[in-house]
Design a binder for these strands. Structure first.
Lengths: 335, 335
DNA sequence: CTGAAAGCGCTTACAG
DNA sequence: CTGAAAGCGCTTACAG
């Protein structure tokens, strides 16, 4: 493998001159530059990333910290990882995966070994143990998720409250005065799933403001149980003819539960939902909905992180991604 | 951040002695070792991974190359990525993500910049363009997937032929003489999805050997279309009362198609399937099946890759992971 | 505008 | 068993 010394020799210049044309720092005579570029091409030279990192104290890599529970069951994770890698590559950064059964250990080791210039933490929840190693250190990091106390760390997330507002408004404008709010199980709210809390609070507030009443159903985990529960609720006499859904498992099973109950959308039931974009694709969900915005969220996260790497001492930032309503004709107008 | 020089000073020894206790290469007097270890603890010292990499020419990181098409639609990808990262971490390696809309570009750059010691290529297909940058270079790599021509690169995959054998045998032993073989669309076989080919060929051979006849149905893409097609085939007069499935979309929709057709499993239809483990969990599939073995496949891939990094010149290896039959009472005995 | 020198934080022969 | 020195492949002041 050719080194910068080989290139310098081939071009008949000093190594520092090669370095100068490599990273465009200094002005180099066009003719000299040409000689260097020819030598680089001839020798098929590439900068050794590790050597550059040692000299600059910049690894040009970011670590993405996957929540250890997340690995279990998550069609969305890959989308975020690939999007992160693409976004980072666009800025000349690499992405290294930080996973660990033991949670904060992977973060601590990566930071200590100076393997990464910054961190992206996926799916941050309240009191997330992965924050421990970096809180107070000023190490550049950005959370995807929005815990109540950001502890001085930058954060990006979809604006779940605004999403709830869009969906409730959509039902209200269609004339619905009552809706079943199919939501996550209570444990999730208790465990600090802040997106769930933000959605639920906003949904209740907006519904109240709109004079709409909400029947809440906390859905369990597991496709079969969800399907059975939903079918039972749908069949109940006097059930509202609109559904507001914030629960991926429920959204996925809802078409089948509706089928089980012999109900058509939108003729018999209007449905709106907030769920992950991957879920919508995987199950071809036919509902008017607000979807997660992995590309936008990741784009902002990388942008914030790189800014933070460049300016570690600026005030922490929280950024909410504006949700969009995707219309799919699952809401009928009521008189 | 403390350096090895700080530790040496603190312990009153030479840097090389610190290095020796760090990587246990040389014998160090117990008392000296203790002084060094105390200094390390006191200064909270960690080796700078980049500096070590420069000195040893070993980055201790492996690149995982994600097929650019895969990002689109794949609940299984995250499982493989997390499993890879866990397995690599267990051997002291990091994992960096190599994605690129332009396919081989990411591989070429990572190798040229000496960012990685080796590569894991996920979901390799026939004539995979990601192989181009490394074929013939001897750069350590292992494919997950088993193209017809391995081009000198190590490969690991589930033994799809053996999986087909297990499933056909299971139906045959239960007395079935005919089955509908629900398979992938023709395009997939044409495009070089070698797992599909290996399964199909083995299924036909084994069925013939068992005196079982197979009605083949190539399933299209898209949940709704799959569901409709399956329901139609299931209702047909004289349709076989057993199904052999190798198509994830079809497996996912089959419970619903059976429901649409008013058929019960196993009373009306026996079903066996080979599909991804993630799919089985996500949809709670109730079929006796052979599932992908992400943990075993990834374990073997990492093992082969590390061996290859240590011995670049040994002959290429192909390893098949033995499939297991998971019984779920979806097959009834016929007389 | 160009080049010689020092340094980034390690490891590894090689003397002692 | 321990230590001084050279080197890994870069970048960056600093002279010229």
């Amino acid at each position: 493998m050719a080194t910068i010394a080989d290139v310098a020799r081939e071009a008949g210049v000093a190594r520092s001159t090669v370095s100068a044309v490599l990273n465009g720092r200094k002005l180099v005579m066009p003719e000299t530059r040409k000689r260097v570029e020819d030598a680089i091409a001839k020798l098929d030279y590439s900068v050794n990333a590790g050597a550059r990192a040692l000299a600059t104290s910049r690894t040009m890599t970011i670590g993405v910290v996957v929540h250890f529970h997340r690995a279990e069951f998550t069609p969305a994770l890959a989308t975020y990882l690939v999007a992160l890698s693409d976004a980072a590559t666009g800025h000349g950064y690499s992405v290294t995966l930080l996973t660990d059964a033991d949670g904060p250990g992977a973060v601590r080791r990566a930071v200590a070994a100076r393997r990464v210039d910054g961190l992206v933490l996926l799916d941050v929840v309240e009191n997330d143990p992965r924050l421990e190693p970096i809180v107070g250190t000023g190490f550049p990091a950005v959370m995807i998720g929005m815990p109540h106390d950001a502890r001085g760390i930058d954060a990006v997330d979809l604006d779940f409250a605004a999403g709830a507002g869009l969906l409730v408004d959509h039902l209200a404008r269609a004339g619905h005065r009552r809706a079943t709010f199919v939501r996550w199980p209570d444990e999730l709210y208790a465990a600090g799933g802040t997106h769930a809390l933000r959605f639920a609070e906003a949904a209740r507030d907006r519904a109240a403001a709109r004079g709409m009443s909400l029947d809440e159903v906390a859905c369990p985990v597991g496709p079969e149980r969800v399907r059975a529960l939903l079918a039972e609720r749908l069949r109940r006499a006097g059930a509202p003819d609109a559904l507001l859904v914030h629960n991926d498992a429920a959204a996925a099973m809802l078409p089948f539960a509706l089928h089980d109950a012999g109900l058509r959308v939108p003729q018999d039931r209007s449905v709106v939902s907030l769920h992950s974009a991957e879920l919508a694709r995987l199950y071809a969900l036919p509902f008017t909905s607000v979807e997660s915005e992995p590309d936008a969220v990741v784009h902002d996260a990388v942008e914030l992180l790189l800014r933070r790497i460049g300016a570690p001492d600026e005030r922490p930032v929280a950024r909410l991604v504006t949700p969009r309503l995707v219309r799919r004709e699952s809401v009928a107008t009521r008189r």
